[in-house]
């Protein structure tokens, strides 16, 4: 039998595919970013960084990640704890919490547009409570702060599910006996969470945080739907360089910057949240 060759035959289509559509374009991006008309140059990066929007763009992207990710982590932990503790309605709660996982970032932006729009539900609520006497323009070009809050809320709403699923799976791997032992030794629920769940959950926390941080730098359609160009972010600027400004070398440089930030943070969290092999479950 062709026993030895079989696994390679089975892997070949997927491997070839990833080489052509993942590794090759990745190399192309890198190449385009550091060349212009075939010559090696850093001009693309200079053009990108020289744009008046660039500092704001970087600041917005990083700030958004810095605010959104910790809140999501807390909420995901809360959701995962609730799901793993529920006895009835566990799968229903899990389904509901997971719904945003299937929702496009564009749709998420539109969902929150329905709330924050001038004729939206938030204004309706505020005016019926008598807080405001006429609808406030939350998403106008002078209201950067409210745009930022709306984008942050939409991001939190949309992408907490991804962390929740990873954490629920991770919690499922922690044997119940550890909790029972801790309880016998007098640990309160909070102490059990801090002393047992969190340390044993570290590998899942690592995965969840890395994945989420990478996605946070990719934020694009939510911002497009809620803020238009009033809240520039890196991915949106990349899109602009490619289409509005028709300069694909600078767009490639911008893409490479996003990649570099993503890889940098991935390595950072791999190191900070490292779990020694001997200390795993």
């Amino acid at each position: 039998m062709h026993g030895k060759a079989l696994p390679y035959l089975l892997l070949m289509p997927a491997t070839l595919f990833l080489c052509i559509f993942f590794l090759y374009p990745f190399a192309l991006v890198a190449f385009e970013a550091v060349t212009r008309d075939g010559a090696f140059t850093f001009d693309n990066f200079r053009t990108m960084a020289g744009s008046w929007k660039f500092p704001v763009t970087v600041r917005n992207t990083l700030l958004l990640a810095a605010i959104v990710v910790p809140i999501q982590l807390t909420m995901a932990l809360l959701m995962a704890s609730v799901v793993s503790r529920l006895e009835t309605g566990r799968s229903a709660a899990l389904y509901v919490f997971a719904i945003p996982l299937g929702i496009s970032d564009l749709a998420a932006g539109l969902i929150w547009l329905a709330i924050f729009d001038q004729s939206g539900f938030l204004n309706t609520l505020l005016s019926s409570l008598g807080v405001v006497d006429r609808p406030v323009m939350f998403l106008g070009y002078q209201s950067k702060l409210t745009i930022f809050i709306a984008v942050a809320l939409a991001e939190i709403w949309r992408a907490t599910a991804i962390m929740m699923v990873i954490l629920v799976a991770g919690m499922g791997l922690i044997p119940k006996e550890y909790y029972e032992a801790a309880e016998v030794f007098g640990a309160s629920p909070w102490q059990r969470f801090v002393r047992i769940t969190l340390p044993l959950l570290r590998p899942s926390l690592q995965t969840a945080i890395i994945l989420r941080v990478i996605l946070a730098f990719e934020v694009f359609a939510v911002v497009a739907a809620l803020g238009g160009t009033n809240l520039p972010v890196l991915m949106g600027e990349t899109y602009n360089w490619q289409f509005t400004l028709q300069d694909r070398n600078v767009a490639a440089a911008s893409a490479l910057l996003i990649l570099a930030i993503s890889i940098g943070f991935t390595l950072f969290f791999l190191r900070v949240l490292r779990v020694p092999k001997e200390a795993r479950i």
Binding site: F22, F26, M235
Partner: peptide, 30 residues
């Protein structure tokens, strides 16, 4: 199966997660 190269393939698959994949549409457009 257990075979040489299995780890490399898994790494390749997992690596795709660490990249903002939609960006690859830029070079592919050309």
């Amino acid at each position: 199966f257990d075979f040489p190269g299995k780890g490399t393939f898994r790494f390749l698959v997992l690596m795709t997660r660490a990249f903002p994949l939609p960006l690859l549409a830029l070079p592919l457009a050309v």
